[in-house]
């Protein structure tokens, strides 16, 4: 292949390769192979939606957000409160959850784009803390520390009712995850997605190209907040409970850890990181939570020092090494 066509080949593309299509069948396989632990699958896929959204701002645009749980929790409360008020239809409930978070994200984005890294980090953290405190104070609406429960969700398309085993929930979340992934894949392989990566790589050059950086970042942040809200809505609908910890800084940190564990700026990192994190968490559930925190902290430090790029990055490096070895062995 000429350098010209191979360079064009390397441009980001939304078109799935065959191996990707196969990979997306894995969760479906898990549905049939591990039918007694569907709840775990549902929560992995729910969080994966949120972590994908975080990857857009962090992995692509390079904004470190420590406040994404605000959008997650607001989405969850929106869907939960709608159901409490009798709005039981799940799809519109989920979309409304996304819309409310999107609106909040739009407002927040004006604050976030001001200042540099550290200021941004603090502002996102501050937004998260303010929303948490608000929910805590408005306990007559949100249920405060007790959370929101005792609501029911209607059947999907008016046909498929949520069942005790989580079968319907599983297919519901799986479908939404695929749609969200396709949407984000489209975004990151568009000119807009390229400009986000450019902002991450060299923000100081952008004005010299005639680009307005703040507007792009606001758009990315708003979109990310909306998708995170959808994830929150899914959580509320599939568990029929909203706890105040869905808004906590700890939850924001979890998202961050999942993403970094899998690898930033490549979408699949978000999926793999979330899966690894959630399965480990489930497996070690009997462990004293304090020790879980200890290992989590150690793991974070280790990833930063030794495994930049997370699981996906390490996998790529391994693949690269194997390829060059083979190339040397058979010249």
């Amino acid at each position: 292949m000429s350098p010209r066509s191979s360079a064009i080949e390397r441009l980001a593309s939304p078109r799935p390769r065959p191996v990707e299509v196969l990979a997306w069948l894995l969760p479906a396989l898990a549905f049939f192979l591990v039918p007694d632990n569907l709840a775990l699958g549902v929560s992995i896929m729910t969080y994966a939606v949120a972590v994908l959204a975080l990857d857009l701002v962090l992995g692509y645009a390079g904004i470190v957000s420590l406040g994404h749980a605000a959008f997650f929790g607001v989405g969850a409360y929106t869907a939960g409160l709608l159901a409490v008020q009798g709005w039981k239809e799940p799809l519109t409930g989920m979309l409304l959850a996304g819309a409310v978070s999107l609106a909040l994200g739009f407002l927040a984005s004006f604050l976030v784009v001001r200042g540099k890294d550290l200021t941004r980090l603090m502002v996102t953290l501050g937004i998260g803390l303010v929303v948490y405190e608000l929910a805590n104070r408005l306990s007559s609406v949100t249920g405060g520390m007790d959370g929101l429960s005792g609501f029911e969700i209607g059947p999907i398309f008016g046909v498929f009712s949520f069942d005790l085993y989580g079968r319907t929930a599983w297919w519901y979340v799986y479908g939404v995850l695929i749609l969200v992934f396709v949407l984000l894949r489209l975004v990151v392989s568009s000119p807009f997605g390229l400009s986000l990566r450019a902002i991450r790589e060299g923000v100081s050059r952008m004005p010299a190209l005639g680009a307005s950086v703040d507007h792009r970042l606001r758009t990315a942040f708003t979109l990310s907040a909306g998708v995170t809200g959808i994830a929150g809505g899914l959580l509320a609908q599939t568990t029929q409970f909203v706890g105040i910890d869905s808004l906590s800084v700890g939850r924001s940190a979890d998202f961050l850890v999942m993403l970094v564990l899998g690898g930033t700026g490549r979408l699949y990192g978000a999926l793999i990181g979330t899966t690894v994190f959630m399965i480990a968490h489930d497996y070690l559930a009997d462990m004293n939570p304090v020790y879980w925190e200890f290992w989590m902290g150690l793991l974070l430090m280790a990833v930063v020092l030794f495994a930049r790029g997370g699981v996906v990055g390490a996998g790529r490096r391994l693949l690269q090494t194997v390829k060059t070895k083979f190339a040397r062995a058979a010249p």
Binding site: D117, V257, V290, F294, M296, G297, L300, V304
Partner: peptide, 30 residues
């Protein structure tokens, strides 16, 4: 530890020191 991260991106610094906080909390607990 921290010395290794002076030239690293801010994200790495945030993640590393946050991990340090988590581990130190658990250690204090223990």
């Amino acid at each position: 530890l921290f010395r290794r991260l002076y030239k690293a991106p801010h994200l790495d610094q945030v993640l590393f020191t946050f991990g340090f906080v988590l581990s130190s909390i658990a250690a204090a607990h223990y």
